[in-house]
Design a protein around this nucleic acid. Structure first.
Lengths: 189, 189
DNA sequence: GTTAGCATGTAAACAGTTACATGATTGT
DNA sequence: ACAATCATGTAACTGTTTACATGCTAAC
């Protein structure tokens, strides 16, 4: 998904400014967390283009004690365009994990690093589980409830797997590295 | 992860040509499937740059009945650089799902589309589970075994969740749309 | 009086894709 | 004859990020 669709998706829920869209796209507990996290430099031009196309309409809103903000609202044409853009057969999920890349190479990395990375990951997965558990599922649509429940199940599964199998990585960490001995050629090829 | 690191990761396992790296990066059952899928236009320049930097070295290999290929091998400096590049604390996993975006908005989409998307997803998840089950885990390192096992558990969980809760989406699909314009749907490719 | 947050935006750079260009060989 | 696979590569484009620029208010 691109920033354009992200903006439409968020504005479909209700009016927001560029700044608020950014905050929402970063909030892990928000449903859009499953999709993108965009920077301001991507959001503002996207909003301007969407307004040019008549898919959203903006108005300046003055606030006390804060700078004025430009609040956008989705138009009827925008709603149609959004529905059209999510009506194609979805592509397979895309997933990238630096942790799994590290895990694959546990043997050639220092045990300390592996242990730290595991602890770090467990901590952030626990945080995410907690945040998802605290979401008020009553407040949202059935579709969003499905997605939140899915996120919770997947995050719990990920956490449980790591807690159960962490020894698999910790026990082999550093096994294929000789620290002091210079020019050690590895046996495995 | 970027194409540069992908190339180093694959060449760390053994020599390969640009064409072969592409194939490996696309193979869902291969361990690198968890990381990136790069196009030729990204791989070839990356390989040239890595060779310039002395991190890999290439030689032309002539073949009978096929065009010659340029096979690259990782150098000692390349191995060091790869270890260095995966030694930073891993960032949180990145995940994008067009299916979940669609699911979130099940209410405003036609039931037919939702049903098709679910069937499609179930089919591809089943394929992935089967492919992962057929992987010969004995042949690979403990780190790779961990990653493969993780992939299998997560894929099975995703599949089970969808099979158990598909009704949640199917029952609400189209609930929030007025059929004022009858059957203006075009056949998707 | 400095840091943090609100708010919008631009310029330069980077990463990566699509489409194109080439050419050989094998199979239908 | 035509398509598919192997094999390498470039040009143009898209999308996105980093760093910068501005300025106002609130809190420490």
């Amino acid at each position: 998904m691109n920033v354009r669709t992200l903006c439409l998706a968020i504005l479909y829920e209700g009016p927001a400014s560029g700044y608020e869209i950014r905050k929402l796209s970063m909030d892990e507990t928000h449903k859009f967390a499953h999709f993108v996290d965009a920077s301001y430099a991507a959001i503002y031009p996207a909003l301007n283009k969407l307004e040019e196309e008549g898919l959203i309409s903006g108005r300046v809103e003055h606030q006390e004690g804060k700078p004025a903000k430009r609040v956008y609202e989705i138009t009827e044409a925008g709603r149609k365009e959004f529905v059209r853009s999510i009506s194609q057969m979805p592509e397979a999920d895309k997933f990238k994990s630096e942790f799994l890349l590290m895990a694959t190479h546990a043997e050639i990395l220092p045990p300390r690093l592996i242990r730290e990375a595991i602890e770090h990951r467990i901590a952030s997965l626990r945080e995410k589980v907690q945040a998802l558990e605290e979401c008020d599922t009553c407040a949202c649509s059935p579709g969003s409830r499905f997605v939140l429940a899915y996120g919770l199940v997947m995050t719990r599964t990920s956490l449980a797997f790591l807690e159960e199998h962490r020894a698999m990585l910790e026990d082999v960490a550093g096994a294929a590295v000789e620290q002091d001995t210079p020019d050690r050629t590895e046996a495995a090829e």
